Computed example of a mutant assay.
Amino acid sequence: MIYLDSAATSLWHPKEAEERMMQALRGCGNAGRGAHDATLDAGRVVFETRMRLAELFHAESPERIAFTCNDTEALNTAIFGLLEAGDHVITTVCEHNSVLRPLYAMEKQGLELTIVPADASGRIDDKQMEAAVRENTKAIVVTHASNLTGNITDLARVHAIAERDSLLLIVDAAQTAGILPIDVQKSGIDVLCFSGHKGLLGPQGTGGIYVRPGLFVRPLKMGGSGIRSYEKEQPKAMPEHLEAGTLNVHGIAGLCGALEYLEKTGIDTVYQREMERMRFFLEEIRGIPGLVLYGTDDLQQRVPTAALNIGSCDSGRVSDWLYEEYGIAVRSGAHCAPLMHEALGTREQGAVRFSFSHVLQEDEVRTAAQALRQFAEEEMQI
Results as ranks from 00 to 15, higher is better:
Asn136Arg: 14
Asp183Gly: 02
Ala160His: 09
Pro117Thr: 01
Tyr210Asp: 14
Gly110Pro: 11
Leu200Asp: 08
Phe194Asp: 06
Leu111Glu: 07
Val191Gly: 06
Glu107Cys: 12
Gln175Ile: 08
Ile140Pro: 00
Gln204Cys: 08
Arg123Leu: 12
Val158Trp: 01
Gly110Trp: 10
His144Arg: 09
Leu100Arg: 03
Val93Thr: 13
Glu135Thr: 11
Arg123Ile: 10
Val133Asn: 03
Val99Thr: 08
Asp154Glu: 07
His144Pro: 05
Gly81Gln: 10
Ile115Trp: 01
Leu167Asn: 01
Val158Leu: 10
His159Ser: 14
Val171Asp: 04
Glu84Thr: 15
Asp119Arg: 01
Ile152Ala: 10
Ile170Ser: 00
Glu163Met: 11
Leu200Ser: 07
Tyr210Asn: 07
Ser98His: 06
Ser146Tyr: 04
Arg101Lys: 09
Gly207Phe: 02
Ile182Arg: 03
Asp154Phe: 08
Thr153Pro: 09
Ser166Met: 10
Arg134Tyr: 05
Leu82Pro: 05
Met129Cys: 02
Ser166His: 15
Ala173Phe: 13
Ile152His: 06
Val141His: 00
Thr114Leu: 07
Ala173Glu: 07
Leu113Ala: 11
Val191Gln: 04
Ala162Ser: 13
Ser166Glu: 13
Leu111Met: 12
Ala162Pro: 04
Gln109Thr: 11
Gly199Met: 08
Val89Trp: 00
Met106Glu: 10
Pro181Met: 09
Thr176Leu: 09
Ile209Gln: 02
Glu135Phe: 08
Gly110Phe: 12
Leu192Lys: 03
Ala139Asn: 01
His159Asp: 11
Leu167Thr: 00
Gln109Ser: 13
Ile170Arg: 00
Glu112His: 14
Leu103Trp: 04
Ile90Cys: 01
Arg123Ser: 09
Ala173Trp: 05
